[in-house]
Computed example of a mutant assay.
Amino acid sequence: MALLETAQVGSDWLKMEDGSYRSRDTAIIASGSGKLKTGTVLALVTATGKYVPAAATGADGSQTAVAVLFTSVDATSADQRAVIVSRHALVSHNGLTYGSTINDATKRAAANGQLKAVGIIVREGA
C-alpha cells in the first residue's frame, strides 16, 4: 500500500497517510465537546458511537484515544459531522491537541500509545 505525503494539512500534523485516503473516516463529534481544532486527539464513547476529546480517565470509552480530528468543528451545542484520521497514519506531536485532562507528558505518552494501537504513529519532532 502506498502512503501519501500530506503537506500543510491539519496544521501540518499529518505527515503521511494511507493511499486513497483510507486513513480517514467520517464521524460524529458529540454535542458539548466545544470548539475543536484540527489535530485534536479523539476517543469513541461506546454507548453513543460519537467521538469526544480523549480523556485521561473514564469507563465509557472516552479514556482511550482512537483517532485524530482532521477538520475543525464547533460541537458546543450540537453534534457535528467531521472527518477523522483513524488508521494507517504518521503524525507529528507538534499540532496535536489533547483533552484537558491529558495534561502531562505521562498522560500524553499513554494517549500516543493508544493511537499506535490503532495504527496512528505519533513522532516527536516529525
Rank of each mutant, 00 (worst) to 15 (best):
T71V: 09
T71Q: 12
T71C: 11
T71L: 10
T71N: 12
T71K: 04
S72L: 02
S72E: 09
S72R: 02
S72G: 10
V73G: 02
V73C: 00
D74Y: 10
D74P: 08
D74N: 12
D74A: 08
A75D: 02
A75E: 00
A75M: 03
A75V: 00
T76N: 13
T76P: 08
S77E: 12
S77H: 10
S77D: 13
S77Y: 10
S77L: 12
A78Q: 06
A78F: 05
A78W: 04
A78S: 09
A78G: 05
A78P: 04
D79A: 15
D79G: 15
D79I: 14
D79T: 15
Q80G: 11
Q80P: 10
Q80C: 12
R81Q: 14
R81M: 12
R81N: 12
R81K: 14
R81Y: 11
A82S: 11
A82F: 05
A82R: 02
A82Y: 03
V83D: 06
V83Q: 04
I84N: 03
I84T: 07
I84W: 10
I84L: 12
I84C: 08
I84S: 08
V85Y: 09
V85I: 14
V85Q: 08
V85M: 12
S86F: 10
S86Y: 12
S86P: 07
S86K: 09
R87C: 09
R87P: 04
H88L: 14
H88W: 13
A89I: 08
A89Y: 06
A89L: 13
A89S: 15
A89T: 08
L90V: 03
L90Q: 03
L90C: 00
L90P: 00
V91S: 08
V91E: 07
V91L: 11
V91Y: 06
V91N: 06
V91Q: 04
V91K: 06
V91R: 03
S92K: 13
S92F: 13
S92T: 15
S92V: 13
H93Y: 09
H93V: 10
H93D: 14
N94Y: 14
N94T: 15
N94C: 13
N94H: 14
G95R: 04
L96Q: 05
L96W: 01
L96T: 05
T97V: 07
T97Y: 06
Y98S: 03
Y98G: 04
Y98W: 13
G99L: 03
G99T: 04
G99I: 01
G99S: 07
S100T: 09
S100W: 04
T101W: 01
T101R: 00
T101E: 02
T101P: 00
I102M: 11
I102E: 05
I102R: 03
N103I: 00
N103Q: 00
D104H: 08
D104P: 04
D104V: 05
D104I: 05
A105R: 07
A105P: 05
A105K: 08
A105E: 07
A105S: 12
T106W: 00
T106H: 01
T106L: 01
T106Q: 05
T106R: 02
K107P: 05
K107L: 13
K107Y: 06
R108P: 02
R108C: 04
A109R: 15
A109I: 14
A109E: 15
A110G: 15
A110P: 11
A110T: 15
A111D: 03
A111F: 03
A111H: 06
A111W: 01
N112G: 10
N112R: 08
N112V: 05
N112C: 13
G113N: 01
G113V: 01
G113F: 02
G113A: 05
